[in-house]
């Protein structure tokens, strides 16, 4: 790979195409964070490939001055897998939404995660179908009234995080479109991961689902209603130094405690370990009801497993070492006869 380009700035990752998301859309913040992170990470444009499916979020590649492929609904992880198998050196990012990757593309998402292909997946979760103008999605809350559910949705929503954990994902994180710094740090963290990294990004659709995450993202409640998972630290949260924490009871259910009350000492609190042998704690946080617990953001899971493309190449190299055969020998096979 060439090193001719000097370090690129955030601006260098902006394409000349007009961004056509609705004014006020959360996607702008994510685009900004990705461009910032890519510049911080010293990426170049020609080794970076951004692959998307269909939906508002999937317009993303057009706005990035890199290689980009806007594919078909739900299938971006499959196209991206093919790219990785063809050239594992490429830096491949998948952009998808909750409808794209959890509904029509659910199958590809889980299989990509279990294979651990070296892809970075940004899942924009706005809990609604935006581009088709406001139908409920697989992450919409039960009872949600939309154009297609005038009496309220009766579907139980997915937790994308628990789905990913269940599929054996090796890196799973969550951030929010308006938590700019946190979002950049998550994109940088997932970039370092070897294997599939899935980042769920809560993203506000100000047209069809405005304020979906307001209850825990608004400045006035953010500290009280979110808890940031930091490796090696207790799950502390709370405004103005009020030290609350999340810990787990004997049945692994999360509970909120206050440091210094009821005999809870900070030193006794469990330290968050995204690389723990078991994903039980991560699963417990991912499946906790949103209104009963501060919403966890940060890295749920970060473990190592061989990458799919590496194992593919290793097999090929092993086969090549074991058997050298000319094309002529291949065409000839083992049993022949001669005429004339």
């Amino acid at each position: 790979m060439s090193t001719a380009e000097s370090p690129l700035t955030k601006k260098d990752f902006k394409s000349d195409q007009d961004v056509r998301w609705c004014p006020g859309c959360g996607d702008y913040g994510i685009l900004n964070a990705v461009q910032t992170a890519f510049a911080n990470l010293g990426k170049n444009r020609h080794d970076t490939v951004i692959i998307s499916g269909i939906g508002c979020s999937s317009r993303f590649p057009y706005y990035m001055e890199t290689f980009g492929f806007h594919t078909i609904h739900g299938r971006a992880p499959s196209v991206a897998t093919g790219v990785k198998l063809a050239n594992p050196e490429l830096d491949v990012w998948v952009i998808s939404g909750d409808g794209d990757s959890l509904s029509i593309g659910g199958n590809h998402l889980i299989h990509t995660l279990r294979r651990n292909v070296g892809l970075k997946i940004l899942l924009f979760n706005n809990r609604i179908y935006g581009l088709t103008k406001g139908q409920y999605s697989p992450t919409s809350e039960k009872g949600k009234r939309t154009k297609s559910t005038p009496l309220g949705s009766i579907d139980q929503p997915f937790s994308p995080i628990s789905l990913a954990l269940g599929a054996g994902a090796t890196w799973v994180g969550r951030s929010v479109d308006i938590f700019a710094q946190h979002l950049v740090s998550m994109i940088e963290a997932m970039d370092a991961h070897q294997g599939t990294a899935l980042l769920e990004i809560y993203q506000n659709c100000n047209i069809f689902n405005d304020g979906a995450f307001q209850g825990f993202t608004e400045k006035s409640v953010r500290d009280e209603r979110t808890v940031e998972m930091r490796a090696g630290e207790p799950l502390l949260f709370g405004p103005d130094g009020a030290k609350k924490a999340v810990r787990f009871d004997a049945g692994m259910a999360p509970q909120v405690v206050t440091v210094g009350e009821g005999g809870v000492a900070e030193a006794d609190l469990p330290k968050w370990d995204p690389s723990a042998g078991s994903p039980a704690a991560a699963m417990s946080l991912a499946t906790a009801p949103e209104d009963a617990l501060p919403v966890p953001i940060g890295v749920f899971r970060d473990v190592q497993r061989p990458k799919y493309e590496d194992e593919t190449i290793a097999q090929m190299q092993q086969a090549k070492a074991g058997k050298q055969e000319s094309l002529e020998a291949l065409l000839t096979g083992s049993e022949t006869w001669t005429v004339g």
């Binding site: 078909i72 299938r75 897998t81 093919g82 063809a86 199958n107 590809h108 593919t312 055969e325």
Partner: peptide, 25 residues
């Protein structure tokens, strides 16, 4: 050993999409 990569996908759609991705690359 002839440098052929085979990918048994999760379904027919993933199979063709991966092939398209490979061609793109």
């Amino acid at each position: 050993h002839h440098g052929v990569v085979t990918f048994q996908a999760e379904d027919e759609i993933a199979a063709v999409c991966a092939a398209i991705g490979a061609s793109y690359a």
